[in-house]
Design a binder for these strands. Structure first.
Length: 271
DNA sequence: AGTGCGGCCTGTCCGC
DNA sequence: TGCGGACAGGCCGCAC
């Protein structure tokens, strides 16, 4: 599921319920996620107070004084705030029970997500250390994309979905940003002009910002911290619209596979 | 070093 | 109604 807007929506949702609350218990019902949930997670967290709830790329970072909990929602994960005494359902793999009577409940049917623990700076963690810039930060712009793309032969869509190039752009928003920028998803990354990269960077920024404002995109699974869906899917121009009319030229939207992922584009508006 | 693909999982949907 | 297969929003780790 979740791309950057969905993770940011979750972060904003859980932050007010989590900040300055201490951990009463950790319940792990299913430790087998993408990586095994640390067996001593309870020992690490119980009695600790959350000092910050941050996000880096699609990783949520819940910091306590002795370390940081790293949460990734994978493809089908969600993190919700609810009363701790509400019975867990199927796929509710982990609860972080808080002293205020609430719990953070991690659900992930496909178990592509992860819950990790680090006692070091989380940005130095192996999985985070080589991530690219945040798309909504100053560090991300057309110049960064242009420089990074020289001599790259891969498709631009694959390139902007590479988290070492820029974080947070998944399959939906990659298609959407390329449509807005008028760039064909199969164009070689190394053959795109600096000018077009400036436009693309701006469209990436805009589509992600708008999606955050709408509470993210819900196609199947995504729910926010209250278990409610996002609304950005109503704004999608190409994703999931194969065969339907392009909003600009009325040509039929096409779908093709790029790097094993479905990619939607307008054959007339994107070059 | 850059690139492409397999694999991790469950659920849903579609065609037969 | 049942069954097989394709597909789904991520991304690491490996072979080339």
């Amino acid at each position: 599921m979740p791309e950057l807007p969905e993770v940011e929506t979750t972060r904003r949702g859980i932050e007010p319920h989590t900040l300055n609350q201490s951990v009463k218990a950790v319940i792990v019902r299913q430790p087998r996620l993408r990586w095994i949930v640390p067996a001593d997670l309870s020992d690490c967290l119980v009695g600790q107070k959350f000092k910050s709830v941050r996000r880096r790329g699609k990783y949520l970072l819940l910091e306590v004084s002795v370390g940081t909990l790293i949460v990734h929602l994978g493809m089908s994960g969600s993190l919700r705030v609810l009363m701790a005494n509400i019975s867990p359902e199927k796929h509710d793999h982990v609860d972080i029970v808080l002293s205020n009577g609430f719990a953070l409940r991690y659900r992930d049917p496909r178990r592509f997500g992860a819950i990790l623990w680090t006692e070091h700076e989380p940005e130095q963690h192996k999985l985070l250390a080589s991530l690219g810039p945040e798309p909504l930060s100053e560090a991300f712009d057309g110049n960064a994309l242009y420089q990074r793309s020289r001599n790259r032969r891969q498709a631009i869509k694959t390139f902007i979905m590479d988290s070492h190039v820029v974080v947070g752009v998944g399959n939906i928003y990659a298609s959407e940003a390329l449509f807005r920028a008028g760039i064909h998803p199969n164009r070689a990354a190394g053959k795109i002009s600096k000018q077009r990269y400036h436009l693309l960077a701006e469209q990436v920024r805009q589509v992600l910002s708008e999606a955050i404002q709408q509470g993210g995109t819900t196609l199947r699974d995504f729910v926010n911290e209250q278990g409610k869906p996002g609304y950005f899917q109503q704004t999608l121009n190409v994703y999931g619209r194969a065969g339907k009319d392009c909003i600009h030229c009325a040509q039929a939207i096409r779908v093709t596979k790029i790097g094993q992922r479905s990619s939607f584009y307008c054959p007339n508006c994107q070059h």
